[in-house]
Design a protein around this nucleic acid. Structure first.
Lengths: 235, 235
DNA sequence: ATGGTATATATGTCTATACATATTAATCTC
DNA sequence: GAGATTAATATGTATAGACATATATACCAT
């Protein structure tokens, strides 16, 4: 017989109902919505369940919530997107191509001032500079240009970076907690063009990334992708 | 006297402790961690509190969780970043510049095949094509090139897009739920160069965005930013 | 061996209740 | 009326307990 329960109230279903009311303009952008307790009564569930649903929508940017002030529909909804940061080996594998890796250069050197400032190196301090090419099948995929603070990554100076990319070595051996990410477009100079197999002057997507272990910057990397590369995400 | 409670166990503090163990390599990448019930006993809090902490870390990409299988430290941590989608007016205002807007063109037309496919238009169907320039002070900031499905945005054909940008009109008047976002680099052609005030051939960051109301694609937009623009985020 | 079935287990979620905390609104004092 | 104090309120969070659900593993029959 299995009488279906008239109250299948998961937090997802509450979220769906709230979203429906927002889309239907029952709760227009900028307006207040009822408080959690009232909503819980109206929808027939516990306040914690309403809280879970509304919190989720707030994280997604659909709602603005403030203690005591209440909850209102965001004036400009969906302002956030989750970006999957490409782990190069996985990204290439997902394209169904064989992943390849070639170390181009590796040396301890004094970085240019901008990098030295980013890594917070002492005056004249040295850092490990690694350049490498990642391949998708036989085609160049991305060029990695990376500076590493040796003190923040003990063991890196002894690592064999011709076999494992610096990125993967760091992921496995240097604990890190956060960092920054920025995107821009650059024009291929002769060196980049030769390595990536494109014409000089081609517009390329470049991703700059710094990684921190909580106290210092472990590494600063620039990834310059092959011509035509697009970074995708869903809202 | 206010004896400080020896158990100030918020879910954030539990999360911090778990993160500490991961960073300290007590729980190395790829390894299993104790189950929620055991952790709750060990740390002296309720299982729900542990659940909240671990769920948060899983959303951040630090942990992989599966029912029955348990929780393990992700082999490649921190794979996700939250990207703040630029609402142009706000972005310019945050730079401390006056926001300006100029409508370049507006007409109903048959879009090129790629756009028609994206919008799922019937054969030969028309869509509204809007081009506009957004200004930061006196400087060009970004060019918006947008196609809108009229049926999905009732009222758009009567809107005065010389005063309000199509983007803002849509945000306020067309409910939407999701979409896609992709980034790439393009070379400035003569037209773009003239509008953005740069040399032809300059590498520019381009953001392509589609917006859906759940059943159909409402709009497809290409935003081409001024030379040197960088999109930033933190992990 | 092979394939299906049962069971155990870890996470996922809901509930009711209590208290914490931020912040607005009301009130009091000078 | 200006500024400080107090109360009220909505969200934020912790707890114990219960049940739901996915799935790895053990077990069984063929």
């Amino acid at each position: 017989m299995n009488q279906s329960p008239q109250t299948a109230h998961t937090w997802q279903s509450i979220r769906a109902e709230v979203l429906r009311r927002i889309r239907a303009r029952e709760w227009p952008p900028g307006s207040m919505i009822p408080n959690e307790a009232d909503l819980a009564i109206e929808l027939g569930c516990a306040r914690a369940t309403v809280n879970r649903a509304l919190r989720d929508l707030a994280e997604a940017g659909v709602l603005d919530r403030r203690r005591r002030a209440g909850t209102r529909v965001a004036a400009t909804p969906v302002r956030r997107a989750v970006l999957q940061i490409p782990v190069i080996r996985d990204e290439v594998a997902a394209l169904g191509q064989a992943y390849g890796y070639r170390l181009l250069s590796r040396k301890l050197a004094t970085p240019p001032p901008s990098v030295a400032a980013t890594l917070a190196l002492p005056e004249g301090g040295a850092a490990l500079h690694v350049r490498a090419l990642h391949l998708s099948g036989a085609h160049p995929f991305v060029i990695e240009d990376r500076w590493i603070t040796p003190a923040a990554a003990p063991g890196i100076l002894d690592a064999d970076l011709s076999q494992v990319s610096a990125n993967e070595w760091l992921v496995r051996n240097a604990p890190f907690t956060g960092g920054t990410l920025s995107f821009g477009a650059v024009s291929a100079d002769d060196g980049l063009a030769a390595l990536l197999g494109c014409l000089p002057g081609t517009a390329l997507l470049r991703l700059d990334r710094t990684t921190s272990d909580g106290t210092q910057i472990v590494t600063a990397a620039a990834l310059t992708y092959h011509a035509g590369y697009r970074l995708q995400t869903t809202i």
